[in-house]
Design a protein around this nucleic acid. Structure first.
Length: 481
RNA sequence: GCCUCCAUGGUCAAGCGGUUAAGACGUCGCCCUCUCACGGCGAAAACAGGGGUUCGAGUCCCCUUGGAGGUGCCA
């Protein structure tokens, strides 16, 4: 039975690298009919950000990554928040001490800092000197009883190798002598990640530990812990980082968006998931569109890439535009409406028609207001906009065309697209002009923009007869200068 | 510095000893067209470098270079 877990620290929003780790972890569980667990790693009380835990719940829910066990859903292996498991860790630490895998340490911060500074001054990697390893048991007990501050450290062997087999990276080994005796239980009684991840993964019966490569080089140390306990080591799957460019990883500091930010901008959940899934994983086929449930079927470890990948906003945007195009028109209308309102509130515009015009032109929802504001207010524009080589128009041609079309448009009784189209086409033929020589200037005259969603006819229709005639009148006046 | 890991076009990425080295995004060109999009067609664009192993190497090994991660009483 596969049991996987996503174990974030509540230090802020859910960034995209975290989302991808969560996604793969979730997918692996689903693919194997296993259990997906959420665990909150909040042992660093100082870094905890208020509200961050709730944010994690919300983001995972919005992403569609439902967990079978977790703080807010329960489960048989709880609690799922580490600070609520605090009484558990010292017990295991004691056991580890009994087995020789750990020891109490009373060294002061000052002594440690000095030693570290000295090592660095010598150009060496600092390592704790096991100063407290051989303290007699009675002395240890006496000092603890006396309330002396202390931690518990891992007792790493001085010789030999430590290693593990990663499902993605293969065998990873290091010499024990390069490893430090890290703190397992801190002065505040809470465990460090080094200890908590081992105890929790074991007690929660996690079979596959999927996490970022920042843990790759410390994983051998965790294996030592499992071995000291006599526990079975889970399967490790370390996942490469998501980068913003070749040398820096995605981060809020540089303005990289979080999952929430993307959603707020008007990126669709399914598009984000689809894109993220393919960032570091390949189905090894030409297929590129996957829904979450399709990913649950298709995902496997074999398709994982070992190299870090760069988050390409442009490709995400393409995915988004594709997802928008596939939307049912009424669904798109529903999504677009709040964005229409931003630019067109109070205006009498046919949103249904407008959204039909916009659907194939919208890449991200937040582009909508700027694409449609001209319906609300006619922008000022330069008459040179009338010049278009291919359409064979310029301000002079435009003036002639507009002057001739004004009465034609004014004479249309029922303002429908069909009526406008027919009237205009008939007039164009009668005058012996080219479509472009009339329609281009007309579109400019009533929109003031070089490019618009839809042509002159659609825009005239959406604007309504009164507004169209009003704008036309002003534009003709402008041309007469 | 030391330890670990990684390396195919600008980006994602297929390839798992024998290929004209896929595909997608982006870019550029053409077509469609009342603009812009959409859609269609096409083009440019990559195995970091050097040594091995092999009849044969993008694929295996080593070195170099470049990059990432770790080196915390952070995770």
């Amino acid at each position: 039975m596969v049991r996987t877990r996503f174990a974030p620290s509540p230090t802020g929003y859910l960034h995209l690298g975290g989302l991808r780790t969560a996604l793969y972890t979730y997918l692996y569980a689903r693919k194997n009919k296993g259990t997906f667990i959420l665990r909150i790693e909040d042992t660093d009380q100082e870094r905890e950000v208020p509200g961050a835990v709730q944010k994690i719940y919300d983001s995972l829910r919005q992403a569609g990554l439902s967990y079978d066990e977790g703080p807010d859903v329960g489960g048989d292996y709880g609690p799922y928040i580490q600070t609520q498991r605090r009484d558990l860790y010292p017990k295991y630490a004691e056991e580890l001490i009994e087995k020789g895998g750990a020891y109490y340490c009373f060294c002061t911060k000052e002594r440690l800092d000095e030693a570290r500074a000295a090592a660095e001054a010598r150009g060496e990697t600092y390592k704790y000197d096991k100063h407290c390893l051989h303290l007699p048991k009675d002395e240890v007990e006496r000092r603890i009883a006396a309330g002396e501050p202390h931690v518990i450290r891992q007792n790493v062997p001085l010789t030999g190798m430590a290693g593990f087999d990663d499902a993605l990276y293969g065998r990873v080994e290091v010499e024990c002598k390069t490893l430090d005796d890290n703190v397992l239980i801190k002065g505040d009684g809470l465990p460090t990640y080094n200890f908590a991840n081992v105890v929790d993964d074991h007690t929660m019966r996690i079979t596959h530990v999927m996490r970022g490569t920042e843990y790759l080089s410390s994983a051998p140390k965790y294996t030592l812990l499992y071995e000291a306990f006599g526990w079975e080591v889970p399967t490790y799957v370390h996942l490469p980082v998501v980068m913003r460019d070749a040398t820096r990883k995605l981060s809020k500091r540089y303005g990289d968006p979080s999952f929430e930010d993307l959603l707020d901008m008007g990126y669709l959940r399914d598009a984000i998931i689809n894109f993220i899934a393919l960032l570091g994983w390949s189905p090894r086929s030409e297929r590129e569109f996957f829904s979450l449930s399709e990913l649950e079927q298709a995902f496997d470890l074999e398709g994982l890439n070992k190299a870090p990948s760069i988050f390409d906003m442009t490709k995400l945007t393409w995915f988004n535009s594709e997802y928008i195009k596939k939307l049912d028109p009424s669904a798109f209308l529903g999504m677009a409406t709040p964005w229409f309102d931003q630019a067109l509130a109070g205006k009498n515009i046919d949103y249904t028609r407008l959204s039909a015009l916009l659907q194939s032109r919208t890449e991200v929802l937040n582009q909508i207001p700027e694409m449609v504001v001209f319906f609300a207010e006619m922008p000022a524009f330069d008459v040179e906009l009338y010049t278009h080589k291919k359409m064979k128009t310029d301000p002079a041609v435009a003036l002639e065309a507009l002057t001739k079309m004004r009465p034609v448009l004014d004479g249309i009784p029922d303002w429908s697209e069909e009526a406008i189209h027919d009237a205009l086409m008939a007039a164009i033929e009668r005058e012996g002009m080219k479509n472009g020589q009339v329609l281009w200037p007309l579109r400019i005259a009533i929109s003031g923009k070089a490019s618009t969603p839809g042509g002159a006819i659609e825009i005239a229709f959406l604007l309504g007869k009164a507004e169209t005639m009003k704008r036309l009148g002003r534009s003709v006046a402008q041309l007469k200068g």
